[in-house]
Design a protein around this nucleic acid. Structure first.
Lengths: 189, 189
DNA sequence: GTCTATATGTCGATAGAC
DNA sequence: GTCTATCGACATATAGAC
């Protein structure tokens, strides 16, 4: 178990995550975070020496939080589990005007530091693995479950970008809902 | 018809588009473009007074080029037309390590200038409209064709981000191919 | 159309006092 | 843990010579 972050470090991660998911990792500065918290940028460097350190800590915390919230992939029905994932992404889009942190960092990957990219990669491996486990538990053969899991995560993230750009939340529903229906029919385990 | 751009302006747009699609619009500077062309950043400002002007011209040219390349949505079979779109995106991913310009600008939208966002929005409207026209020409009812078109574009773009992040081109194929198969069976017009 | 030179601001990052 | 002060680098952008 790692050291518990200080209250300020937590607030900095909150601010950095919100900004990254709206504006991109290249869309804010240490000064922006400092201003939001009412401190100075030198104090931000005390908690996270470099921006790469901040980015790595941010995606690490995101991974733990999201995977923890998803919980046991073999609990409940596949339909309920997938619906929960779809609803969670929809809420961040409608209420926070934000993308998934993994999608934003993935888009910017080529301009980011290695530690941040590695965390992003791990996030996608984990969330795809979770969806695959849900589908396999519902009886899908492994190869199908794997491709379907990748397609669901890809579609959700592409739909979030497109819906936000078009300013039309219905785009998200139109793109995602029929896919979920086909993956998790009502009679699935 | 607008004025033909100079050779230097064209080269600047080429360089800007390649960098945006790999690094994001916030991932390069006028100096980067100038260095690539062997000129000075002041000369870049002669062709594009502000970075917003460059971004707007870049997405405008992209829209015209992509929609022109797609051509008549009622020509050929739906299966061939959709396969061409999927293959084109796959090639930019494998050979250029690049995303679709619309997807990158869409992800960064909240940190971009209005003119760039407007062009991005128009791009998505146009490319979704083209896919919808392909599907409708193949006999799909309008409502289905519209949702399917949005889902295809969303899935392609999400799959590109995920495949690039994971460094695995197969992820793109796994996410996209079954969808295309279901949208354009071999017997479609 | 390109250049030199410069203005003005912001960036990430550090040193050292409190 | 936060501050003041500062660094050097880089950002967008402009003025004016050639």
């Amino acid at each position: 178990m790692t050291t518990a972050p200080s209250a300020t470090a937590t607030r900095l991660l909150d601010a950095a995550e919100a900004r990254t998911r709206r504006l991109g990792f290249n869309g804010f500065s240490f000064r922006d975070l400092a201003d939001e918290l009412g401190i100075k940028s030198a104090s931000v460097h005390h908690h996270f020496p470099t921006k790469a350190d901040l980015g790595a800590a941010m995606i690490r915390r995101y991974r733990e939080r999201i995977l923890g919230a998803l919980g046991d992939p073999t609990a409940g029905t596949a339909a309920d589990q997938l619906a929960a994932v779809v609803a969670a992404h929809r809420t961040t889009l409608s209420e926070l005007d934000a993308l998934c942190l993994g999608a934003m960092l993935g888009a910017e990957a080529s301009s980011l530091q290695d530690a941040v990219c590695a965390g992003t990669r791990a996030f996608f491996v984990e969330i795809v693995g979770w969806v695959r486990a849900v589908l396999q538990h519902a009886g899908a053969p492994e190869a199908h479950a794997d491709a379907d899991a990748k397609r669901l995560i890809a579609t959700i993230n592409g739909a979030m970008i497109m819906a936000r750009s078009l300013g039309d939340l219905a785009v998200y529903d139109q793109a995602v809902n029929p896919l979920v229906q086909s993956l998790a029919p009502m009679n699935s385990r």
